[in-house]
Every structure is written in structure tokens, then in C-alpha cells.
Simulated scan of single mutants.
Amino acid sequence: MFWFFVMGCVEQEQNSSVQHSEDAQAVIPSAVPQDSEGVPIRIGWQVTWATQGQLAVILKNSEILSDLGFVPEFVGFEYGGPLNEGALSGAVDVLFTADQPAIALCNRDKSWGIIGRLMYNRVGTFVPQSSSVTDLSELKGKSVAIPFGAAAHRETLDAIREAGLDPVRDIVSINMGVKEISAMATAGRWDSIHAASAWDPVFADLESSKLVRTIAQGKVTSVVVMDDDFVHKYPGSDQKFMDGLSLAYQQYKADPKKANEAFKQESKLGFSLEALDLAASVEPNLKKEEQISVKLSALDLDNIQKAADFMYEVKILKEKASTDAMIRKSAQ
């Protein structure tokens, strides 16, 4: 199961509200009986992952889904790996995740498909504030701490290539988990490490706290994945669910502070409101002048395929995968 573990989107300390894969069958709520009013749906979300978290909490605390005919149950997971395992065990019907965990799940079990765009989330490469490095090209011959196998790994290597460096020959890549990177940067104990990469909300927290200086930033497409069997049983449920996500975005956009505070209370995270706003700054659906859209653009589709290609390159996938078959009609 190593390939699932390394695909996790969020690696925060364990939270008591989080369900873990080894006891998923015992503790995750079953679907509501079919004779209940409405369509029972179990929603897997990641309790420590910002922006996604605000949307999930809005859906959880509002009548949005029930007004659309659903009877929702929300199932919290620590990060993408256990969430995928929960999906494979039949513990959830739909889930919120990043591109690489989505690809891993859909490649493993073809009955899961991407039904729409969840959000964009940031990943970044950064250095200590005291560092003399101002550009990626200045990392030649230096050590960079990277969470191997995660989207931050992919984006960091791409940025290094674009800076004219060979990521294999010109830098020393050190495999380090995002929790370790956060602790290192917070304590200021970089030792022989010259730069590091992480994703939000850890990246936003370090950046907003002025603990690091960003030298490169990338954007990852995160998605909503649903079980085809669920859609076949309840036709149109995929589009209705995405309609609900659009309505959640409307509430989030109308009052970001309220959404942030509700997410902080639910997740019990210590991130500042400033960090949560910074994490959400890359999402166009939260900008007043932008129309809300949960569809995947042509660029999104290209980037998801690039993610699959990267996963094959670093041997997370045993064979090359075409993501076209993973994308469902409701997503476009």
C-alpha cells in the first residue's frame, strides 16, 4: 500500500475526528437506509486540508445538500491515502481529493470517476528568510527537501527544469514529509537543507508567518470523485452534487471569514485566518468578479494527464495511464 501512502495530500498530526483505514469498516457510518427520504450519500473529506475544508463544512452545516434531495453523511480522513482506502472498501460514495490521489484511485478501480473540479490549491518552493537564494537557478549544487511522490514533488521538479537546471544532476533532492518540513522551518533548523517545498495550508502558514521566502509557486487541480455504481443507482446524482458544491462556493465567497472560522473550529487547526485566506487566494471561484464554475477546463485536463505521467515516471504507477477514461461527463 506504499503507493497510496505517498499520495496523501495533507500530512497533519492525527485528529480525534479522523477515521483511519484500518478500522474503516467498523466506525465509518453506513449509508442511510434506502427507504428514508432522499438519496443517502457518504462524503469523504480531508479534515486538515484548507479551502476544501471550508467547502465541506459549509455543506455539512447547511441545508444545501438536503434541499437537493440528499441525506448526507460526512466522513473525515487525515489525508488522501486513507481516503482512497476508504473508497476501495466501500465506505464512501464521493470524495474530495487532489489530482494524484484521484488518479491512483481511478487507476486502481475503474468504477470511480472524476465528476468535477473541487478547487485549485497552491504548492511552493521556499527558502529561509536569511537565505541569499532569490531564484531557483541559484539552487544549483544545493539540497532541497521535497515530499516525494506528492504534487509538491512534481511541481518543484518542473519549476527547477524551467529555471534551466537538471533536477537530477544539479540539485540534491532529500525526501522529507511535509510535517517534518513544517517543523524544520518553524524551528529555523535548516542545517544542510537550503530549500524545501510544501502545499497549503502548511505552505500558507509558513509564508504568512514570515518564516520562509517563496521562490517558486505552482497550482494543483483538485477534484471530486464519485463511485459510478452510486450514479447508476441514483441517476443525475453526480450533477446534483456538483450543483451543491457551486452553492457552497456562493456561501464561502459571501462570507470568507465565517467559512474560515467554521473550518478552524471543525478541524481544530491552529492556522491563522490570514493563512487560510492566502491558501484560498488561488481559487477563482472566491473572487468577486469571477463566475463560479466547477467544471474542468482544457488546461485542467492537460494538467491531470501530466500528473499521471509524473506518477509513472516516479514509479507510483506501474504502467502509463490515460486520464481521459477517468473523466466523467459532468466534469466538462
Rank of each mutant, 00 (worst) to 15 (best):
V18W: 10
K140V: 04
A254E: 15
M7Y: 02
E22H: 14
G164D: 07
G113F: 01
F2I: 14
S297Q: 11
K140E: 05
S192V: 14
K140M: 04
F203V: 08
S222E: 10
A163C: 09
K219C: 10
V314I: 15
F5E: 15
S16R: 10
W3G: 01
L136F: 06
P235W: 15
L105S: 02
Q250W: 11
D93R: 00
A98N: 15
E162D: 12
S17D: 10
E289M: 10
R189M: 11
D67E: 15
K287Y: 05
V127R: 03
G80V: 00
A198Y: 03
K306G: 09
Y312K: 12
K210M: 08
V39H: 02
F70A: 00
V71F: 01
V47S: 09
T221L: 04
S66T: 14
A159S: 14
T156G: 02
F310G: 00
S62H: 03
R169S: 12
Q12N: 09
G44N: 06
G236T: 10
E261F: 03
R169G: 07
D23N: 12
G80F: 04
E78W: 06
V314W: 07
K257H: 06
Q34E: 05
V75E: 01
S246C: 12
G149H: 04
D109T: 04
W112I: 06
E11G: 02
W112A: 03
A91N: 08
D309A: 10
Y120V: 08
E85R: 11
L211Q: 15
D228W: 11
E283K: 09
V18G: 06
M311A: 04
D300T: 11
K329Y: 11
L65N: 00
W190P: 03
N303C: 08
Q100Y: 13
W49A: 01
Q291F: 11
R108C: 09
A331C: 10
V39L: 02
W49C: 02
A87I: 01
Q12Y: 12
K320F: 13
Q100L: 15
F2C: 09
T186A: 13
Y252M: 07
A298M: 10
S130P: 03
